Simulated scan of single mutants.
Amino acid sequence: MKEPDGVKKVLLIDHIEGQCRCIIGFKDGDAREAYMCGEPVYQRRGKKLSSWCAYHYGQMHTVAAQQNRESDQSAASPQAVSIVRNP
């Protein structure tokens, strides 16, 4: 899936149901005026509508899966424990 070109971007206040809600930028750098992606949202069969287009949905799940793999690997590696005994 290729990255959206930004042609359909929409201001948060003008956002309507069915448009991707991924924040892609800000109008004049003002955090109160966020631009949303605006592409049609992704829908899996038998599931409710997503909040993201297919591209951003894939990005979100790819990053989350990678973070889970990294945390699983760090939990699996043994940790050295020092024990101090007082005589």
Score class of each variant (00 low, 15 high):
1 M>Q: 10
1 M>G: 07
2 K>N: 09
2 K>R: 10
2 K>F: 02
4 P>V: 01
5 D>A: 06
6 G>R: 12
7 V>M: 05
7 V>C: 03
7 V>R: 12
8 K>E: 09
8 K>P: 00
8 K>A: 11
8 K>M: 11
9 K>C: 06
9 K>L: 01
10 V>E: 05
10 V>L: 05
10 V>R: 04
12 L>P: 00
13 I>Q: 13
15 H>A: 08
15 H>D: 13
16 I>T: 15
18 G>K: 11
20 C>T: 03
23 I>A: 07
24 I>K: 10
24 I>N: 01
25 G>K: 06
25 G>E: 07
26 F>I: 01
27 K>T: 02
27 K>C: 07
27 K>Q: 12
28 D>H: 12
28 D>S: 11
29 G>W: 05
29 G>T: 04
29 G>I: 03
29 G>F: 06
29 G>H: 04
31 A>D: 12
31 A>C: 08
32 R>Y: 05
33 E>W: 03
35 Y>D: 03
35 Y>S: 04
35 Y>F: 15
35 Y>Q: 03
36 M>C: 12
37 C>P: 01
38 G>Q: 01
39 E>M: 08
39 E>I: 00
39 E>G: 00
40 P>M: 05
41 V>Q: 06
42 Y>L: 01
42 Y>H: 15
42 Y>F: 13
42 Y>T: 00
42 Y>Q: 10
45 R>S: 09
46 G>Q: 03
46 G>A: 02
47 K>M: 06
47 K>C: 05
48 K>H: 06
49 L>Y: 08
49 L>H: 08
50 S>I: 01
50 S>W: 01
50 S>E: 07
51 S>P: 00
53 C>D: 07
53 C>S: 08
53 C>A: 07
54 A>C: 07
54 A>Y: 05
55 Y>V: 02
55 Y>Q: 04
56 H>T: 04
56 H>D: 06
56 H>G: 03
58 G>N: 14
59 Q>T: 04
59 Q>H: 05
60 M>A: 07
60 M>G: 00
60 M>Q: 10
61 H>N: 14
62 T>C: 02
62 T>Q: 09
63 V>S: 09
64 A>M: 13
64 A>T: 13
64 A>H: 11
65 A>S: 10
66 Q>W: 04
66 Q>M: 06
66 Q>Y: 05
66 Q>A: 09
67 Q>I: 08
67 Q>S: 08
68 N>D: 11
69 R>S: 11
69 R>W: 08
69 R>Y: 10
70 E>H: 08
71 S>R: 15
71 S>Y: 11
72 D>A: 13
72 D>P: 00
73 Q>Y: 06
73 Q>K: 14
74 S>Y: 10
75 A>Y: 14
76 A>L: 14
76 A>W: 10
76 A>K: 15
76 A>N: 14
77 S>P: 00
77 S>G: 04
77 S>W: 03
78 P>T: 12
79 Q>C: 11
83 I>Y: 13
83 I>T: 14
83 I>M: 11
84 V>F: 14
84 V>C: 09
84 V>K: 15
84 V>Q: 15
86 N>R: 15
86 N>A: 13
86 N>C: 13
87 P>K: 14
87 P>E: 05
